[in-house]
């Protein structure tokens, strides 16, 4: 069982290249997602704080 894990992690001797490449990809993709979600949450929270006081009049039948 441990042997299989070691083989898997070893990536045929190329572990020093394969794992950094995969991890780097994951880090870039996840950070972009997290940062973008943070921006969205922050903006929506601000918007919610503002709306009741400055709510623009809704037009009937507006899209």
């Amino acid at each position: 069982m441990l042997d299989a894990l070691r083989t898997f992690l070893g990536m045929g001797g190329y572990a020093a290249f394969v794992w950094p490449a995969l991890i780097l990809t994951a880090v870039v993709l996840v950070s972009m997602l997290v940062l973008s979600l943070q921006d969205l949450r922050r903006a929506e929270r601000t918007l919610q704080g503002m709306e009741p006081a400055d709510r623009p009049r809704r037009r009937r039948g507006a899209a």
């Binding site: 979600l37 921006d39 969205l40 601000t46 503002m50 400055d54 623009p56």
Partner: peptide
């Protein structure tokens, strides 16, 4: 992933622009 992130980012942009516009209007 691209489309997910794109939608999130556009929504965020729209929200922050609305915040700005409301501030200006206020």
């Amino acid at each position: 992933y691209f489309f997910t992130l794109l939608l999130i980012r556009i929504r965020a942009d729209l929200a922050s622009r609305k915040v700005q516009a409301l501030r200006v209007a206020a």
